[in-house]
């Protein structure tokens, strides 16, 4: 469904919490500067707090917004459960969502992400993020200040290497599961089979009634 990104989750898992917290604060400042409409649109919403929980990371994040502001912070273990809403999913799925590369409803339909709590909050956050064209690689490259361009180049090269690996794995996966590729006619076929089973059941019920009647008649001697 979406690309896996084991390198990113492995790397982030190793970053100590205090360092990651400072990186998140810096990244938020940069995103505020690079995406003024994002802050403006979050600021227009009613106040809300949502927790973002990558299932393959030991870290959780919080987005607080409304009343003209937007803030992102790293949560500690002692932070209480989210007051409003929570979205859980793999880091790759969450980044794909943030970048608008994947449809959140599709992820929800397949249960690749889990949403709990206030839907108003999660829908508002999803829609507000989807208004912006965010590429995480570029946002992270911007962290490097004057070294942004070389960082971006390295990021692109890494992406290419990871992309190639992903394609190879996806091809292998597809080959292994060729027999399982769902047919477009599957739904129609199911409908037909369902109708057939229903018709057979009706026929069987009628035969049962007829048989019972015949058996009853035989017992009473009626014709």
């Amino acid at each position: 469904m979406h690309d896996s990104h084991p390198l990113a989750s492995a790397a982030l898992s190793m970053v100590p919490s205090p360092v990651l917290a400072r990186m998140v604060a810096l990244l938020t400042r940069i995103m505020r500067r690079r995406h003024p409409h994002l802050v403006e649109n979050f600021g227009r919403l009613d106040h809300g707090i949502i927790h973002i929980e990558p299932t393959d990371l030991p870290h959780r994040f919080e987005i607080e917004y409304g009343a003209g502001q937007m803030d992102v912070r790293l949560l500690t273990e002692d932070d209480p459960p989210p007051p409003d809403a929570r979205i859980r999913g793999s880091l790759a799925a969450l980044i794909a969502l943030l970048e608008g590369r994947i449809d959140s409803d599709a992820l929800f339909f397949t249960r690749d992400i889990e949403i709990t709590g206030s839907t108003e909050v999660s829908v508002a956050v999803r829609n507000t993020l989807d208004r912006e064209e965010i590429v995480m690689r570029d946002e992270i490259a911007a962290l490097f200040g004057p070294f942004e361009r070389p960082a971006r180049r390295i990021g692109r090269r890494l992406d290419r290497v990871i992309g190639l690996a992903r394609t190879q794995v996806a091809t292998l996966h597809a080959k292994l599961h060729e027999a399982n590729v769902p047919s477009r006619d599957l739904a129609a076929e199911c409908d037909e089979l369902r109708a057939e089973v229903k018709a057979l059941k009706t026929r069987l019920a009628k035969m049962d009634v007829r048989q019972m009647r015949t058996a009853g008649n035989a017992a009473t001697g009626a014709p």
Binding site: R111, E114, I115, T116, G117, S118, T119, E120, V123, A124
Partner: peptide, 27 residues
């Protein structure tokens, strides 16, 4: 289905979707 009235609850084995006080589905 106004978002303000929609909620999801995880009961371990499945997820319940609710609109207002009414449970609509269990997955």
């Amino acid at each position: 289905a106004p978002a303000s009235h929609v909620s999801y609850r995880d009961d371990g084995a499945s997820t319940l979707s609710r609109l207002g006080d009414v449970t609509l589905n269990r997955f």
